[in-house]
């Protein structure tokens, strides 16, 4: 088990290195993408700060609070992109037969698929997010150890949910070889995670907590940090992530079984 983990880590590291080489080969184009991501991050942040020059509270949150929500969203979103970006081309991996190679080689096909595009542009974008987050953290009233621990735990939990969504999409791609747009709907819906979910009308808010758990991924960690998340909801978040992981991995295995028994 540990030997296999070590091997998978080495394979991942090698694929990350290859992704970097691939991205560097794009030159100017890659620079454009990187710049675009940075522009989006900084402009959005600048607008939020500017708005607070004209008001001092938003749905009961201060600028520091809103910044925590916004930056935490970015952290979860970007880290998920770094690790799971390859899933975006799951359909192509099935069509071009890459999946066939993954299946006959002694290494997890799911990991191979996710790591075909470890996005280094996002590793660069995550650095300013971490910097801003550190600065914001500094301006928060003293954060208790438990709140900090819950924050980190719920971020990891959010990543687990993000992972499950990606696995589900990969499973759908293997099964139907269609629905390539599902992942883009997810990307678009993630827009809602930039703000604390408290600002949304109740039906939308419940949707984001229960049905499309973007709120659980992006808002819950910040709420825990600010001490506004109840223990019950924290437990719900963790149970949800566990269930989502289990269900998505089960769906993935079913999809692979079906691929190897039905498809031609």
């Amino acid at each position: 088990m540990t030997a296999s983990l070590g091997k998978h880590f080495r394979v991942w590291r090698r694929m990350a290195w290859m992704s970097l080489g691939q991205q560097l080969s794009y030159g100017v184009g890659a620079a454009g993408f990187l710049l675009g991501k940075l522009i989006r991050l900084f402009f959005f942040f600048a607008y939020l700060v500017a708005i607070f020059k004209h008001t001092n509270s938003l749905a009961g949150y201060s600028l520091t609070d809103i910044a925590v929500f916004f930056l935490t969203f970015n952290l979860v979103d970007i880290v998920a992109q770094i690790f799971f970006r390859g899933i975006y081309s799951a359909r192509r991996a099935v069509e071009d037969g890459d999946l066939d190679y993954y299946l006959i080689q002694p290494c997890s096909p799911l990991m191979r698929m996710a790591a075909t595009m470890v996005d280094f542009l996002d590793i660069v974008t995550v650095l300013p997010v971490l910097g801003l987050l550190a600065a914001t953290w500094h301006r928060l009233p003293a954060v208790g150890v438990w709140h900090a621990a819950a924050y980190v735990l719920l971020i990891l939990n959010g990543l687990a949910i993000a992972f499950s969504i990606h696995v589900l999409v990969a499973g759908i791609a293997v099964r139907t070889q269609e629905l390539e747009n599902t992942i883009w709907i997810y990307r678009d819906l993630m827009f809602l995670g930039r703000f604390p979910i408290d600002i949304y009308a109740a039906p939308l808010r419940w949707t984001l907590v229960l049905l499309v758990p973007i709120g659980v991924m992006t808002s819950f960690p910040s709420q825990a940090l600010l001490g506004t998340l109840s223990l019950g909801w924290a437990c719900y978040a963790i149970a949800l992530a566990a269930a989502a992981l289990g269900a998505s991995l089960w769906f993935w295995r079913r999809s692979i079984d079906q691929y190897t028994s039905v498809s031609s």
Binding site: V28, G29, A30, G32, F33, L35, G36, I39, F43, Y47
Partner: peptide, 22 residues
Amino acid sequence: TSQSGGPLFCFELFLQFAAGTF
């Protein structure tokens, strides 16, 4: 440039903020 998706991506994001969209 062979991969000009980059400039377009960057331009579209910049425009959203510079145009006063959000």
